[in-house]
Simulated assay, not measured.
Amino acid sequence: MNIKKITPQQLREKLARGALLIDIRHADEHRREYIEHSLNRPLDDLQQKIETDATCVVFHCQSGLRTQANIERLAKTAEHVAEVYILDGGLAAWKKAGFATVADKGQPLPLMRQVQIAAGGLVLLGVLLGYGVSPWGFLLSGLVGAGLVFAGISGFCGMAVLLSKCPWNKR
């Protein structure tokens, strides 16, 4: 199956004709801001074929990178649909084109940004402790760095798991 890219203007026309729009971002990203009537089916959950009567399906993410990187996987989940597209530039292109989104400003920062802030803060703290208090403070920075390397290799981020259980991330 050949999945083509479409512009936000083309997507708008297809939506008016009944196309199904699928947002493959994580649920917390989708809750924060989404295109009206889009269905959230995170990429990690797309294991089987999408059940729809729609003759046209359009996938999108934040910037278009995730959809492009997973184009074969998306094609398999929608191989029974006549027309399948990805939104070129994702949600960012949709907004840049001046089209409305539904936003919930009460949502916390995206989990990955929370991880970046926490990891960066711990590394900085370790360096400050290492120079100002004891050389053992550098161990904190090393442990955070090792955790990030492990997360990159394994796909499991313990810090993200911990942060997801924090009260501000419970909704």
Results as ranks from 00 to 15, higher is better:
Asp44Ala: 10
Asn40Cys: 11
Ile3Phe: 02
Asn40Lys: 05
Phe59His: 09
Leu46Val: 02
Leu163Glu: 02
Glu83Gln: 14
His60Thr: 08
Asp88Met: 10
Gly152Asp: 04
His30Ala: 11
Asp104Cys: 08
Val115Trp: 08
Arg31Asn: 06
Ala75Asn: 10
Lys5Met: 07
Arg66Thr: 03
Glu29Cys: 09
Ala82Ile: 09
Lys14Glu: 15
Leu46Trp: 07
Lys5Glu: 12
Met1Ser: 10
Leu129Met: 10
Leu163Asp: 03
Tyr85Pro: 04
Gly147Tyr: 09
Leu124Glu: 04
Leu122Lys: 08
Leu87Ile: 05
Leu128Glu: 05
Trp136Glu: 14
Asp45Thr: 13
Arg171Ser: 14
Arg41Tyr: 12
Arg17Thr: 11
Cys61Ala: 04
Leu143Gln: 01
Gln116Gly: 00
Gln62Pro: 00
Arg113Tyr: 01
Glu72Gln: 07
Ile71Arg: 01
Leu39Lys: 12
Gly121Asn: 09
Ser63Asp: 00
Val58Gly: 06
His26Phe: 08
Gln62Lys: 09
Leu109Pro: 04
Met159Asn: 10
Gly145Lys: 11
Pro110Arg: 13
Glu36Leu: 07
Arg171Gly: 15
Gly120Lys: 05
Gln114Asn: 03
Asn2Ile: 10
Met112Thr: 11
Lys4Thr: 12
Gly98Pro: 02
Tyr34His: 15
Ile35Asn: 11
Arg113Trp: 05
Leu140Pro: 12
Asp23Arg: 03
Val84Asn: 01
Asp44Arg: 08
Cys61Asn: 03
Pro110Thr: 07
Gln116His: 04
Ser154Ala: 12
Phe156Gln: 05
Glu72Lys: 05
Arg12Glu: 10
Gly152Tyr: 03
His26Met: 12
Arg12Ala: 10
Ala93Lys: 05
Leu65Arg: 11
Asn70Ser: 06
Gln116Asn: 07
Lys96Gly: 07
Val133Ala: 13
Gly89Glu: 04
Gly147Met: 06
Val123Asp: 05
Ala119Asp: 11
Leu11Ser: 09
Phe99Lys: 03
Cys61Tyr: 05
Asp23Tyr: 00
Gly90Thr: 07
Ile153Asp: 06
Gly158Leu: 13
Met159Arg: 04
Arg17Phe: 00
Gly147Ala: 09
Leu39Ser: 09
Val123Lys: 06
